[in-house]
């Protein structure tokens, strides 16, 4: 029933998505260049500090590519959660004035992060060739990794969007939580550095095999193990289910609380 309502509103989804993308870089001088700069600059800094100074291991790849591939996946997740999670607060006026399937707004806002992902992915491929490497055949798995990442992020974003309509604390906590997640995921450092004793716990983070899998597909670093994938799949599915339930409950009287 509600899925059908969402499907019937696909034109609105497309327009909200287009709006989100268009307004992001309107009245900016650099425009789309920002999309390139955002993942590239932190990746360069990390490569210099951790790769050159600290000489941390990077699975045999140049540290710049290693870090950038991590930031591409993490960035997709973080940007989607951030945009989806703040969508009701940013567009509260829309929610209080007109009825439309409420989930559309966070879904469309969050999905706009795909643009950033595609651009930073292109930058990564360009850099791989520039540094004299070539992506592996595993690149075919990239759409799957991206799809899983964005599905996970959209679910979390939906829950945060609805909760932050009630309590703004949730919106304020998002950047903080995403920062913690950055350090709890193998973005800037390699899995090799994680002590074997805490690996099972560490691998409950559903981003772990997504980042590892993406990196393996692009750079030929070791692929995540089967047990890592299984553990993350279970927690990932649980996160999605809980997030959707939370959204369904917390989005019922949105217009009254926003």
């Amino acid at each position: 029933m509600r899925l059908r309502e969402l499907w019937e509103s696909r034109d609105l989804f497309a327009l909200l998505l287009g709006r989100e993308i268009k307004i992001r870089y309107k009245q900016t001088a650099l425009g789309v260049a920002w999309v390139v700069v955002q993942p590239l600059v932190p990746a360069i800094i990390i490569a210099v500090v951790l790769g050159t100074f600290a000489r941390l291991p990077s699975g045999g790849s140049p540290y710049l590519l290693f870090a950038l591939s991590g930031f591409v996946v993490y960035g997709l997740f973080a940007s989607t959660v951030n945009r989806a999670g703040t969508s009701f607060i940013r567009d509260g006026q829309l929610v209080t004035r007109i009825y439309f399937p409420r989930a559309l707004l966070p879904l469309a806002s969050g999905s706009a992060a795909i643009v950033d992902f595609v651009v930073s992915f292109a930058v990564l491929i360009a850099l791989i060739f520039l540094l004299g490497h070539a992506p592996t055949a595993g690149i075919a798995a990239v759409p799957l990794v991206a799809l899983l990442t964005i599905s996970l992020a959209l679910s979390v974003g939906l829950a945060i969007a609805a909760l932050s309509a009630h309590y703004r604390d949730f919106a304020l906590a998002v950047p903080f939580a995403l920062q913690l997640l950055l350090y709890a995921s193998p973005v800037v450092y390699s899995m090799e550095l994680v002590p074997a004793s805490i690996r099972p716990l560490y691998s409950l983070n559903p981003l772990v095999p997504l980042i590892e899998g993406f990196r393996s597909a692009m750079l030929g670093t070791p692929a995540p193990s089967g047990s890592e994938v299984l553990g993350a799949a279970i927690t990932g599915a649980a996160v999605v289910a809980i997030a959707i339930l939370v959204f369904a409950r917390a989005s019922r009287d949105l217009a009254d609380v926003i």
Binding site: L15, R19, K22, K26, I98
Partner: peptide
């Protein structure tokens, strides 16, 4: 309803129409 100041009248017409 749903107008965004940065978008043109044409873009907003489609957006507002879809929201309505």
């Amino acid at each position: 309803t749903g107008f965004h100041p940065e978008l043109t009248g044409r873009e907003n017409t489609y957006l507002s129409g879809a929201i309505l």
